[in-house]
Amino acid sequence: MGPMVWISALICIFGLLVKFILIIKEVYEKERYLLSYITVRHSLRSIIAWLIPFYPRSTRMRPVYYGISYLFHVLLFLLPVFLMSHIVLINESFNLSWPAMNDTAADILTIGVIFALVFFVLRRRFIPDVRFLTSFMDYILILMVLLPFVTGFLAYHQVILYKWIVIAHVLSGEVLLIVIPFSRFSHMITAPLTRAYTGSEFGNIRHARDW
């Protein structure tokens, strides 16, 4: 594997880490009082409540979107990690290995991810309140996630232009990794933080549930 994979992976991990540290640092400097309200117990209570599928009322009111979104997020991480082709490459580099997902299953789930993203686009186009909130950037973000999956799917099936598709797959994956810390994709670390704070305010101060 070329160096760009490692560079982009490191940018992603360290970018998120730095972002996290900067947030905590700024809270310390400007809003330290927030720390007197946040508790581990209430943070976890809220985060866990929101990780249980269809437990929060909000998610029950939009079961289709929430269900698709939930599976999408799970697959977004599981698919690349447990894909055999990726494990083989990791194994060549680090001699590390873990069980791989069945190829056919991975293939079907990839189609699932692609459909989820198409669903997100359609939702952005046709649900009026979501459309109102949507900007061009939201489509770019969807495209950035879509590309590695579509190219990965095409590469696996060796449909056309195999070499170029693989290159596009690698590049789009790397771009996605690099972009994560600098875009709203960083909600992967900020969302648990905002959830934790709101969960603490609700649980610790207001003695109420926030789901």
């Binding site: 082709s85 083989v88 194994n91 060549e92 590469a155 696996y156 099936h157 060796q158 195999y162 070499k163 693989v166």
Partner: peptide
């Protein structure tokens, strides 16, 4: 697996010829 993968790919890289991408050898 690595004996095959590494032997083929490393040589191909070093010589600058021959396939290195998965699907170039494992053609469906």
């Amino acid at each position: 697996v690595n004996a095959f993968h590494k032997r083929c790919k490393e040589c191909h890289y070093d010589l600058g010829k021959g396939p290195v991408l998965c699907g170039e050898c494992h053609i469906k």
